[in-house]
Amino acid sequence: MTSGVRQDVLLASSAPDGGGAFDRTGATSPWRSALGTLARDRSAMTGLAILAALALIALAAPYVAPYDPRAQPDIVALKYLPPTLAHPFGTDHLSRDVLSRIIVGSRVSLSVAFLSVVVAATVGTGYGAIAGYVGGKLDGLMMRVVDALLSIPRVLLLIAVATLWNGLELAGLVLLLGLTGWFGVSRLVRTLVLSAREDEFVTAARALGATHTRILTHHILPQVVSPVLVAATLAIGNVIVIEAGLTFLGMGVQPPNASWGSVFYDGMRDVGAAWWISISAGAALVITVLAVNLVADGLREALNARQLPAR
């Protein structure tokens, strides 16, 4: 996916050699100063505001939606109504209110994206931390596996699984997106852990006889948190688009569940008759992804001690 390119690009733009350039002093620096930097970043705050609003709408969806998103008042006479005050985004092929479906669909789209990224970040951090901390032959083997997984285009892998196990439940979709999304994170974490292992604090702690668990949780993982957070935020935008793409190919969220992807797809079946359906869903999607990217951008700069010039 394109947003995948962007994800790599944004990560790489501060770390062309695969993540090593995330300055560790930046990661361990007080969060407060980072938040302060973030608060001064206008575009990041705009993105954050949009995301907060979307999250609120998603949480309160049943109360915010003007109609029951399932209701089909008249599937012949009231289908494909153009936008009016009563139906700002018109109605779909089953005379359902498109605005209500987009509002309720935001729940699926956002929660699938969020949960799958949590899965990806967790698995990726765990895997990368083990590889980086243990090192040696195990590290080599584990990273070869990640290289192999990364060399299969994710979309191809997703389509393979979604076709072979067609009709996935939502939980399955979350797992699928999560378990195909951790490869990059694990590589990033491994690089960070590898360099953190040589850190003076860690050497000191080891000399004082601290256990591996303690060293990992107290000294190494805190340095990993902020880069992973940036990567995860970017991945959310990526996953929203992927979910829509899979649904576009008929493999994502299955009806009667609504997601932005499925509303978009419903509209595409007759763009000539009702272009506004796909446009509305597409707009919701693009705005969200844009907001996510703005926030990720801001986060990266706030958490990164190395200042990019001229910003």
Partner: peptide, 16 residues
């Protein structure tokens, strides 16, 4: 069957 777009659409109307 998910492969049948027609049936997947109509079942939603039937359900309602």
């Amino acid at each position: 069957p998910t492969v049948s777009a027609n049936r997947m659409t109509m079942i939603v109307a039937i359900q309602e």
